[in-house]
């Protein structure tokens, strides 16, 4: 049987198509303003890559903050549960998941593949990928480079602010004082790691720790975070897709639980051409 998980995040949309234990296709692309239109496009692309038709997909679970806008999904599950399932599948011994997304940051405590506790910040950009984005823009650097650069520092600058706006001003101040970019970036990553650590610490960080989301791709952030935690973290081969992967696994579980003959009841009326809201959007 074939299952799909679609994760519409605030900045990136991900799709995973899975057949039994094999991942048939992965799609990662920026989220547009119109989730539904995009959802249609990405799933088409994923179907193409996996070489399957829409009808061949037995069950689709949508997650992420745009999950309610996926009209052809059979079920919606929160991204917290999906991330946890995706990570547990990849790392069965995981106890703590730290997910650093574009607009939020989550900590999930896992015991035997079940959520024991979780925590989430969404009050402001501090502690999220957005913080790093703003910083790289301020410094005129590429987002993917700043982690690497921060590791070249031997003397991280004192950055006390994790409020994005204040930090921007502080960076400019440090630059005017002649502090090097490496040291500034090191200071920023250190400050961000501190902020994430104190937030996730509320659910008590225990081994194994897996880091996911865009933040996991920033080697500087990972290093400073590991320093704060006191041991190393694990990173999935593709840290962006754990939510979509989890959604596809949950899709499979839902079908198993219901039994194939009852599948029809769970499955909502959905057809590929149902995604004709292009007209609606125009």
């Amino acid at each position: 049987m074939i299952f799909a998980g679609i994760d519409i995040g605030s900045t990136i949309t991900k799709v995973v198509i899975k057949q039994e234990e094999e991942i048939r296709a992965i799609i990662i692309q920026p989220t547009g303003a119109e989730h539904r239109r995009l959802a249609h496009e990405v799933i088409k692309k994923a179907l193409n890559n996996a070489d399957v038709t829409f009808d061949q997909i037995d069950f689709i679970v949508a997650t992420g903050y745009g999950r309610i806008n996926v009209p052809f999904a059979d079920a919606q599950v929160s991204e917290i549960t999906c991330h946890m399932r995706g990570v547990s599948w990849l790392f069965p011994n995981v106890r703590t998941v730290i997910d650093i997304g574009g607009q939020d940051c989550k900590g999930i405590k896992v015991v035997n593949g079940k959520i024991r506790n979780f925590i989430m910040n969404d009050k402001c950009a501090a502690g999220t990928g957005r913080f790093l984005e703003v910083i790289s823009e301020t410094l005129g650097l590429k987002l993917e480079d700043i982690g690497e650069i921060s590791l070249r520092s031997n003397d991280p600058a004192g950055i006390s602010k994790t409020c994005t706006i204040f930090a921007e001003q502080e960076i400019l101040l440090r630059l005017s004082e002649g502090v090097s970019i490496e040291d500034i970036l090191a200071g920023l990553h250190k400050a961000l790691a501190g902020r994430i650590y104190s937030m996730v610490g509320k659910i008590k960080i225990e081994k194994d720790v897996v880091i996911t989301g865009g933040g996991a791709k920033n080697i500087g952030l990972c290093k400073y975070l590991e320093k704060r935690i006191g041991f190393s973290m694990l990173t999935p081969p593709e840290p962006l897709i754990t939510g979509a992967l989890g959604a596809s696994i949950i899709a499979q579980e839902m079908v198993t639980k219901a039994g194939e003959e009852k599948l029809a009841h769970i499955k909502k009326e959905r057809k590929l051409e149902a995604v004709t809201f292009f007209d609606e959007a125009d």
């Binding site: 599950v77 929160s78 991204e79 959520i115 979780f118």
Partner: peptide
């Protein structure tokens, strides 16, 4: 999302 995840975590 938090309430949903919380509900999903209740056995």
């Amino acid at each position: 999302t938090r309430f949903q995840a919380f509900a999903e975590s209740i056995n």
